[in-house]
Write a protein that binds this DNA or RNA. Structure first.
Lengths: 152, 152
DNA sequence: TTTATTTGTAGCAAATGATGTTACAAAGAC
DNA sequence: GTCTTTGTAACATCATTTGCTACAAATAAA
């Protein structure tokens, strides 16, 4: 008896906005002082231009990029790549929370339910802060250099 | 004879499951050597018992709890609270990734698209590892003590 | 001024995942 | 045998991400 076992792993559909944001900003870092069109960025990320424009809209709100409409328009970095930290990018496109707290408040009549929220909230702050600190060690410039060298 | 067995593994995204898991396990830490019923846990978390049983099923797979069916059944910790790290809990109920990589592969004809995946993958590993390390500093025992003291 | 280009965003559909619920088979205690 | 409890299937609901079309507004250039 011969059995063929196929294991299909459905990869989570968590949002890849941070990955896309770093990708797009790296493209812009390679075209300083030039307006880059969303259509072109979409070609590299392999997605729709509107998805890119929505992402750029978030990055513009965080003052990481500047966009211009019209002919010759497009998007460029708002400042030098070595002045943009990965933590800035992370904050621009995510809620910045590694894990979520209770969606609904626990039962306040239970000793554990009454106190766990504050404990978890402090833990959340500590974890999120450590991620922020780690990401702040990298700049867009450093990432761009890693990409250019084709290594890590 | 040739059989094809397809196994579908759906990895869950990060949400309030970690918070619920810590909550539930803290309850169990307060009732050592006793079977606690899912209905009771649901009352404290303020949700449905089936939601709790689904969560406990994941925790049982990670060998953090042991459940028993039947009269007098329920769930208890598989070991002492000081032998359960928060990183064990985090791994049991989440994919362990702070951010996701590209859902679709970027354009390989673009220099950035070709190299960014490995750069982000290494960054992801580093960030995820640091979260793991941070969480491993806390045990269920330490969390339980914080809850008992009603402070942090 | 007119035309072509490009962003910004609304609106819609599909896919995915979290959550809540009912239902019921299986396990186990009495 | 009966009652209790878990494990899990099945289904509905809700929110979010992604992909797409469409079009108004802004802008440069002719």
């Amino acid at each position: 008896m011969n059995r063929t076992v196929t294991i299909l792993v459905t990869v989570m559909a968590a949002n890849s906005q941070f990955a896309m944001a770093v990708h797009v900003l790296s493209m812009l870092a390679g075209s300083r002082e030039e307006n880059v069109k969303s259509e072109y960025l979409a070609g590299s990320v392999n997605t729709n231009a509107v998805v890119i424009r929505r992402l750029l809209s978030q990055l513009a709100q965080a003052d990481l990029v500047i966009s211009q409409t019209g002919s010759g328009g497009g998007t460029r970095l708002s400042r030098c790549p070595n002045e943009i930290k990965l933590s800035d990018i992370y904050k621009a496109v995510s809620c910045g929370e590694v894990f979520a707290l209770h969606a609904k408040a626990p039962n306040q009549d239970c000793p554990v339910g009454r106190n766990i929220e504050s404990v978890l909230c402090n833990l959340q702050k500590e974890i999120d802060h450590s991620v922020d600190e780690k990401l702040s060690r990298y700049t867009l410039q450093s990432v761009f250099e890693m990409i250019e060298q084709g290594k890590d």
